[in-house]
Write a protein that binds this DNA or RNA. Structure first.
Lengths: 150, 150
DNA sequence: TAAATATATTAGGCTTCCCTAATTTTGTCA
DNA sequence: TGACAAAATTAGGGAAGCCTAATATATTTA
């Protein structure tokens, strides 16, 4: 994504974005809970994100995304969503598994592959209404179910 | 996989296995080249793998897998291969991209998802001969190509 | 408003995984 | 076989990410 954004920093950034959707203000405590880390780890991450100009955070205050940070976070979030949908759609995974797996691999896919995933989802959308490919997915589903889905 | 196998250690183990297929003897130098790291990193990894009883390596000697190590390496390798095939098959990725992406995400997928990937590949194998689903994949391919494949 | 509680921050430490530079061992060949 | 080259190893260090314990600030409440 950005040259010097690590997987971990992407996660922290995404977490701010997601929390912002739900609550008016984002706090260290919230991020810590969501990311499953302790507050000092959040502080450390925030410092790094501030240095990169993605986040504004005055000591003891709320956490905000800069314009750049928001743009980046949206891209990361979209990527995440697409990946999750792809997994749950193609592999018939339940929501929870698709979610957590998407979370772990989203940072590690090439631009190329991500484009294909997006393309695949677009393809699915375009063709779902027309009921094309329905037979194939029915077959997949039956097959998956047969060896222990859910 | 194994509780205390990191992604990195899995890669080192896999690399020994792959090199063993090609050459009679595996050396530090070979691993370093293949893994794109410097020799001291290999040495360090080998020590860790020895402690886990996956590798036997007497100083300045060749590198060998234990029985356990071989079992583990085979599992890792199979997982890798399946993932690679899945990516290249479903997303119509070229070999190189499928290979390197598989490499990066193989450590991060849940048991559940890996089972599905394996299942998907089995499904494909079973149905390829019967020429089921052919229309769907043709469609995918056309679609992918249309927005800039290769 | 003062004490108690909650939250945030700092300090310092640990592990993993990589590195460079220096040293040791092994292998080669004149 | 002795010198040189190649390979392996050790020593030591750095970045990333996490942690706990201690401290500072903010918020709540009696």
């Amino acid at each position: 994504m950005s040259p010097d954004m690590t997987a971990s920093m992407e996660d922290y950034l995404e977490s701010i974005y997601i929390l912002n959707e739900r609550k008016k203000h984002v706090r260290v405590k919230d991020m810590a809970r969501q990311m499953n880390v302790k507050p000092p780890s959040v502080i450390e991450a925030l410092k790094s994100l501030e240095k990169k100009k993605f986040v504004i955070h005055e000591p003891y205050g709320y956490i905000e995304l800069t314009e750049e940070g928001l743009k980046m976070a949206k891209r990361i979030y979209k990527r995440h969503k697409n990946l999750k949908n792809f997994l749950s759609c193609v592999l018939c995974l339940d929501e929870r598994t698709a979610e957590s797996d998407a979370c772990r691999i989203e940072h590690h896919l090439s631009k190329e592959t991500l484009e294909r995933v997006m393309g695949f989802m677009a393809f699915m959308d375009e063709n779902q209404g027309k009921n094309k490919n329905a037979a194939m997915f029915r077959d997949f589903n039956v097959y998956f179910k047969s060896f222990g889905n859910r």
